[in-house]
């Protein structure tokens, strides 16, 4: 051990993480509302629109709500998230890079 060195760890101290759980799942989306949320990443709105088109072509029994998140993508849109909790059976957040 004579040639061994004792050195400091250079990393900082991480915060405590409070676990959040997945929202309840529905077994069947027929007749339910799914939100497709454009989070304002580069051209994400076009991608989301194409996803909405896919649902209209392939699953017209699912109600699709396309929304564009308020604010830049680093910000929360509390009003929208509240609406999704109240009315949505699920949501897809289109997150880029």
């Amino acid at each position: 051990m004579g040639s061994h060195l004792k050195v400091h760890n250079p990393m900082g101290y991480p915060p405590q993480i409070d676990q959040k759980h997945l929202a309840p799942r529905v077994s069947d989306l027929a007749g339910k509302t799914v939100y497709l949320v454009d989070c304002r990443f580069d051209d994400g709105d076009i991608l989301v629109e194409q996803m909405a088109n896919w649902f209209r072509d392939n699953r017209p029994d699912i109600n699709i709500e396309v929304r564009r998140k308020s604010g830049v993508y680093t910000e929360r849109d509390e009003n929208l998230y509240e609406e999704i909790q109240q009315k949505g059976a699920g949501a897809v957040m289109a997150v880029g890079h």
Binding site: D42, G44, I46, L47, Q50, W54
Partner: peptide
């Protein structure tokens, strides 16, 4: 990737 700069037709192909 990338989504940026892709046309609606190209992005529909991504989705499909």
């Amino acid at each position: 990737q990338p989504v940026m700069g892709r046309s609606p037709t190209q992005l529909r192909a991504y989705v499909d």
